[in-house]
Design a protein around this nucleic acid. Sequence first.
DNA 1: TATAATACTATGCGTAACAAGGTATTTGGT
DNA 2: ACCAAATACCTTGTTACGCATAGTATTATA
Lengths: 103, 103
Amino acid sequence: MDVQLKRGLLDVCVLAVLKQGESYGYKIISELSPYIEICESTLYPILKRLEKSGCVTTRTAEHNGRLRKYYMITQMGKHKINEFLSDMDEFVKVHEFIRRRNV
Amino acid sequence: MDVQLKRGLLDVCVLAVLKQGESYGYKIISELSPYIEICESTLYPILKRLEKSGCVTTRTAEHNGRLRKYYMITQMGKHKINEFLSDMDEFVKVHEFIRRRNV
DNA sequence: TATAATACTATGCGTAACAAGGTATTTGGT
DNA sequence: ACCAAATACCTTGTTACGCATAGTATTATA
């Protein structure tokens, strides 16, 4: 998918994954990969951003002798998803506008 | 609509307008305004970009003693619209992915 | 024993939307 | 006659975000 079209989409994808339960960086990528490509150097800044803006909280736990950072969605994060879905109503109308003029 | 979500959308909106026939800056804004907000300082760089990439051609004509720059879509521009619509198939699937996880 | 997979992080680049500001003419209201 | 709004175009600087590239380090697998 065109890079520009992903803008603003990836944040919400990550939040949508976390809505189903806590997860961690590497796993989030693999959960999203069937739907949208997101590379590490994109994801980790997103996670940092989401934490800073209060959309997720974190806990660090040991797994197989390695530290893993788990991310959990907050109320604010859920609110962000709903905001996105509202925007999508508008987006869909614009999409239709373009399709109508393409016949 | 969120600024980031507009990324990559506005170019195609402009092209979709031009697919219906030539138009000029000010008119394009008014034709789009019921569907999506686009300000002048966004539109004119877009038009320049589209011209540079061969998606539109221009002609300048006098109208009421004032110069007006008319923009016309090219084959390349039409191709760009179709590329966008392909990307949208993917986008729609991601949208559904998010909606499903938001119940 | 090497290579893939797992797991996280930092730096720098390019693109696009927009705020703010500038220029100039015409039209409409009072 | 005068001012505001509408018409019409353009430039500069800022900000945000996706990604390429690179680095670090452990564990599993062939």
